[in-house]
């Protein structure tokens, strides 16, 4: 799985391409961990090219959420397909994490 990474003024934008499952989740985990070690605490996960997510994929974001919040940071999700959004909903995460509607600006959320 490829992850497009872009450093913006106030956040890091990460765009996974393809499927985020038990096989590929380690790459995303290492990617977030690397940015955390560089001192970054604000993340935008762009789901435009994310075709599929399993609990292992969601687990990567969830496992870093407590640390990110403790640092005063945030994870914002955007452009989630109906199927990917549904997995967040099944897990009750739509009330816990911020999912931005399509077309909305990201920067004001940080």
């Amino acid at each position: 799985m490829e992850i497009k990474q872009e450093k913006q003024n106030s956040y890091i934008s990460l765009a996974p391409i393809g499927d985020l499952d038990a096989n590929s989740s380690l790459e995303m985990d290492e990617c977030i961990q690397d940015w955390l070690e560089k001192g970054e605490s604000n993340f935008h996960i762009d789901g435009q090219e994310l075709k599929y997510i399993s609990s292992a994929g969601i687990g990567v974001f969830i496992s870093h959420l407590d640390e990110i919040r403790a640092r005063g940071g945030k994870i914002i999700f955007s452009h989630l397909s109906a199927s990917v959004f549904d997995v967040f909903k099944l897990l009750g995460l739509t009330e816990i994490v911020t999912i931005v509607k399509e077309g909305a600006e990201i920067a004001p959320h940080f």
Binding site: S25, D29, S54, S55, A56, I58, G59, V60, I62, S63, H64, L65, D66, E67, L91, G92, L93, I96
Partner: peptide, 16 residues
């Protein structure tokens, strides 16, 4: 789900 977040777990959601 809040316990999973607090414990910083990666798993525990698949069977659910």
């Amino acid at each position: 789900i809040n316990d999973i977040i607090r414990k910083r777990n990666k798993g525990g959601m698949g069977i659910y």
